[in-house]
Design a protein around this nucleic acid. Structure first.
Length: 221
DNA sequence: GACCAGGCACATC
DNA sequence: GATGTGCATGGT
């Protein structure tokens, strides 16, 4: 059975090993929004190239992307991969932003967390992780972000069954931890960090900050 | 050259 | 409701 202390122990170990992650530092909420879409199933370094392309052209604003043709936008964000679908998704998000909030990102976060999450999920191209990333990292709203790394760490340490879906994993964190956006922010970033460096498919756990914690069956990888 | 990367929607059964 | 597939670049 998973308890608050299991998760807090993971947090302590990761925090001790890696320190503050400063996720999405110095970026505006709008940049976080764009990044959340561009990073879907994509390495962050590729996303940075795409965002730099937008910035250099002074197109990193809601109005600029709203006005761009999807085809032209696609060419600019090409390094992020899936550039045609992502161009469409960014355009959908801008349409939503202007229809509901007059293109003002800050105004969106005056809406309640539950309502805004539902609204974001109604945008074609915005799924649960993208919505939660925007809410947490752009809006500083207390919603836990789950991703493939979260799943790997949780299952590898037998903190959840392998059939668990997104909402179940999200619940686990939110039920166990204080409702604290700062904690959720740091915890998720740390899970990504350990996922990238250690908790990879087929990888062993030697040298992992969580090596001393109980594990799933090692020989499966 | 294979494999992976901070998903999501859609078709099909 | 579950399962399979397309989308695409760039680093290792």
């Amino acid at each position: 059975m998973t308890t608050r202390s299991d998760l807090m122990e993971i947090y302590r170990q990761l925090s001790k090993a890696y320190g503050p992650q400063h996720w999405w530092p110095g970026e505006t909420p709008f940049e976080v929004m764009v990044g959340a879409v561009l990073t879907q199933n994509t390495n962050w370094t590729n996303v940075e190239k795409a965002i730099d392309n937008l910035r250099r052209r002074e197109l990193l604003s809601p109005g600029a992307i709203y006005d761009l043709e999807a085809e032209e936008l696609a060419g600019i964000i090409r390094p992020a991969g899936y550039f045609r679908v992502k161009a469409r998704r960014l355009k959908n998000l801008m349409d939503w932003l202007f229809e509901n909030f007059d293109g003002d990102v800050e105004r969106t976060f005056a809406t309640s967390l539950r309502e805004l999450r539902a609204m974001l999920l109604s945008v074609n191209g915005v799924g649960r992780e993208t919505a939660d990333s925007i809410l947490l990292y752009a809006g500083n709203m207390p919603t836990f972000v789950v991703d493939t790394y979260t799943y790997r760490v949780l299952t590898r340490h037998r903190l959840i069954d392998t059939e668990a879906d997104y909402e179940r994993m999200k619940e686990l964190f939110e039920e166990s931890l204080d409702e604290d956006a700062g904690l959720y922010n740091e915890f998720h970033a740390l899970l990504v960090r350990v996922g990238k460096e250690h908790c990879r498919p087929k990888a062993r756990c030697e040298g992992c900050p969580l090596e001393e914690l109980p594990h799933w069956i090692q020989q499966e990888w």
